[in-house]
């Protein structure tokens, strides 16, 4: 089944991306014609594609860095507090984690709504629209992405820290190491396998952000200013019926993520871990 539902579509994806494939071909009205790398040429010649690619990389990087920073900081915080605040933070995080992406997106949109949202009221921004400007719209989506994805990092890293023997930390503290120093020189190296896993997972997830952008910016923002590759591919394929262009974008994404996979495997290898 894995073969049927994953490998075959990937193969088809590659296939479609080298043909001329639009609505006419789907309904069988016109024969499919082989285009070679024509679709890719069209894609790479399109200024918007490069802009979207750049936006995707920058946006994903910002999301990953913020998610990891927040998640790790809170995981360390969790180890320093007593049971009640810990439980409160844990439950709140699990709540954010459990919230479906689509609900999370609509709720955040409502919080920052120009007319009825409480955030503008509190900040005294009047009817400032967050989704109008390119950067503020991206920023808003970033907040939501971090909100719903830091819990995974926090819980995982927290579980990892708890597995570190207490004596090690005590010894470091007795030697006069500061909190930051303990994190950098003791915890981070010991947690490296875990950090690699959460980093890679975050990269995969944030590079593929779809629902948040699609819902919060209404399918890519005003004049497509908030498009990321994933939404771009979807829009090309389903909104303008250029299936082969959409498929070509999908192949490009796949290749970029494959490169990430290879780096990941390198890292695992260097740690001497056997698959």
């Amino acid at each position: 089944m894995l073969g049927g539902l994953l490998a075959y579509p990937i193969y088809q994806l590659g296939l479609i991306s080298v043909f001329h494939y639009t609505q006419a071909q789907v309904s069988g009205g016109e024969p499919t014609t082989f285009e070679g790398f024509g679709n890719y040429a069209e894609l790479f010649g399109d200024g918007q594609f490069w802009e979207v690619l750049l936006a995707t990389v920058v946006f994903a990087a910002a999301c990953v860095v913020s998610t990891l920073a927040v998640g790790c900081a809170l995981a360390v915080l969790l180890t320093r507090v007593r049971a009640v605040p810990r439980l409160a933070l844990m439950l709140a995080a699990l709540g954010a984690w459990a919230t479906p992406a689509i609900t999370g997106s609509t709720v955040w949109l409502f919080l920052f709504d120009a007319d009825f949202g409480p955030v503008n009221r509190v900040l005294g921004l009047g009817d400032h629209s967050w989704t109008y400007g390119r950067f503020s719209a991206f920023f808003l989506v970033l907040l939501e992405v971090v909100w719903c994805s830091f819990p995974f990092v926090m819980v995982t890293v927290y579980a990892g820290i708890r597995a570190v023997p207490a004596e090690v930390l005590e010894a470091a503290a007795l030697d006069g190491a500061s909190q930051w120093r303990i994190w950098r020189s003791v915890l981070a190296p010991m947690l490296r396998p875990i950090l690699v896993v959460v980093t890679i997972q975050s990269v995969i997830w944030d590079f593929k952000v779809f629902t948040q952008i699609y819902v919060m910016t209404g399918g890519g923002g005003i004049a497509g200013q908030n498009l990321v590759l994933n939404v771009y591919a979807y829009q090309k394929a389903f909104a303008s019926s250029q299936y082969s262009l959409g498929a070509a974008i999908g192949v490009v994404m796949l290749l970029i993520l494959l490169a990430v996979t290879l780096v990941y495997l390198r890292l695992l290898r260097r740690q001497g871990e056997e698959l």
């Binding site: 049927g4 994953l6 088809q12 394929a237 498929a247 999908g250």
Partner: peptide, 21 residues
């Protein structure tokens, strides 16, 4: 390794061929 690679596949891009399947 294939299991790992399979996680990297952007689901949204696969929607198109999956639709045909």
């Amino acid at each position: 390794i294939m299991f790992l690679v399979a996680q990297m596949v952007p689901v949204e891009a696969l929607t198109i061929p999956l639709f045909f399947v």
